[in-house]
């Protein structure tokens, strides 16, 4: 039994590292301070950090399940997405929401990679840090789910 537990930890460790490394890499690439200004200017027409408006609130978005903020009326397209909002997935989303979730309410895209990185770094800064190992298996399982058709 102890061996099984160790085995699980060993299996989970690389996935956990990948999650943390991915998050850190995205944060390192972007500047959260510049990202705050970019966020307010680019996203602030529809979004706030702490209130659902035209779009859902963003506090805690990194690591959150799409379509899961209470009180916001999501499109079926986003509710069906599954998985989690990772920094990489947010980057994909900001390049073209309709490509990721056709029928989503959001159409705005951000073409500039540096601007996207700053915005995502800011979003990560208002999200709780990822749990390194304990949450990694969970996250990996859900990410795999996201790739499956539902």
């Amino acid at each position: 039994m102890a061996t099984t537990r160790i085995h699980r930890l060993v299996l989970a460790f690389p996935a956990g590292l990948a999650v943390v490394a991915g998050a850190l890499a995205a944060q390192a690439a972007g500047d959260p301070v510049a990202g705050k200004a970019q966020y307010e200017g680019t996203c602030g027409g529809c979004h706030s950090v702490d209130a659902n408006r035209i779009g859902p609130m963003h506090r805690g978005v990194v690591g959150r399940r799409p379509g899961s903020v209470a009180g916001y009326d999501y499109s079926p397209a986003v509710r069906r997405l599954g998985g989690l909002w990772t920094t990489a997935r947010l980057d994909q989303w900001l390049q073209g929401p309709q490509a990721l979730a056709p029928g989503a309410k959001m159409y705005l895209s951000v073409a500039d990679p540096a601007k996207r990185a700053d915005i995502i770094a800011y979003l990560a800064s208002v999200s709780p840090p990822a749990e390194p190992v304990r949450g990694a298996r969970h996250q990996r399982a859900r990410t795999v789910d996201a790739g499956a058709k539902r």
């Binding site: 307010e40 200017g41 680019t42 996203c43 602030g44 027409g45 529809c46 705005l108």
Partner: peptide, 9 residues
Amino acid sequence: KLEMGATNA
């Protein structure tokens, strides 16, 4: 802020 956001939107 709202007008900036609206313009960009």
